[in-house]
Amino acid sequence: MSSYHLDHLQYLETEAIHVMREVAAEFERPVLLFSGGKDSICLLRLAEKAFRPSDIPMPFLNIETGHEFPELIRFRDSRAKELGAKLIVRTVDDAIAKGLAHPAPGEISRNKLQTPALLGALEEFRFDCAIGGARRDEEKARAKERFFSFRDSFGQWDPKNQRPEIWNLYNARVNPGENMRVFPISNWTEMDVWQYIKQERLEVPTIYFSHERECFWRGGQWIPVPTPHTDTTKPDPYAGARPKPNEPVKKLVVRVRTIADMISTGMIESPADSVDDIIGEVAAARVTERGTRADDKASEAAMEDRKKAGYF
C-alpha cells in the first residue's frame, strides 16, 4: 500500500473497534445487547474484529417484549450460536411477574416496559456495562449521546450533565450499582450500516427484504397483522393490536426499515430484495429511518423521555 488512507467505513470501523476493546479492558462484567437487528449485527462483526482469535469476552443479552417477529428470534439464536457466544434472554413478561414492570392500563405497546426489564437484567447479572447499537443519526435526543453514556444507580440518563468526552479517552469509571451504556457505532448512519453489511457480506434477517405480508393501516403506517392466537389457555398477547373491523387487511409487498416489535414497526412497501437494492432505497429515501417507528412519534421529546428513564 503506497498511500496511507482510510475510507470512511474503515475510519468508522477502527473507531468502533477501539471502543469495543476499551470496554473489554476497563469493565469487569460487560454485556453486548443483540436483538438480531441490522445495527447489532454490525456490532457482532465489530466484536469479532476487536477480539479474534480470542472468544468475544462478553455474553449477549436481548430483552423480548413478547411481540417479536419470529424470523428475528430465529436469526438471533442462530447467529449467537455460530459465534459461540452465550445468549441471555429476558422478557417483559418476567419483569411484570417479578413486579419490576407495571403495564399502564390500556397501553398495548410494551416498548416502555423494556426499560425496567433491561435494568432488572443488568442487576441480575451485575453487568456494569452494556454495549448497544444505537446511532446518533437516528433521532435528535440520540444526537447528543456520548460513546460512553453514564447511567446512575436508577439507570437514568442526565442529558444536561453528561461527562465531557474528549479525544478517544473514554472515562469508564463507575461506582457499584451504576453502569455504562456504550455505543460503538454512534457515528454511523443508516447508509453506513448497509454499506458495511454489504462490504462484510453479513447475513441479515429475511424481514429486511421484500416479502408478502398481511398489513393494516393504523396511525399513518402499515402495521403487520400479528401472529394468530392459538393457545387459548392464555390471554392473547396481541389483544388490542389486531385489526379492527374498520381497518381492512391488505396483502402487500413490504419490508422493514427498522425493527421494533410487531406492534410498533411500520412496514414499508418496497420491492428491495437484496442489500444493493436496500442501499439504493436508503440513498433515495425521503423519510428518516425512525419515521416508521410509532414509538418515536408520540411527542417531540418521546425518545428523550424514554432515555432519561433508562431506555437505550
Binding site: R136, D137, E139, K140, A141, R142, A143, K144, P159, K160, Q162, S186, N187, T189, M191, E300, A301, E304
Partner: peptide, 24 residues
C-alpha cells in the same frame, strides 16, 4: 430546531450539549 434536540434547548432556544449531525 433540527439540532436542538433536547426539550430544554427548544424551550430556551439555546444549544446545551454537543449535537452530532451527519451528511454526505
Amino acid at each position: 430546531n433540527l439540532t436542538d434536540g433536547l426539550r430544554a434547548e427548544r424551550e430556551q432556544g439555546i444549544t446545551i450539549d454537543v449535537a452530532y449531525r451527519y451528511f454526505a
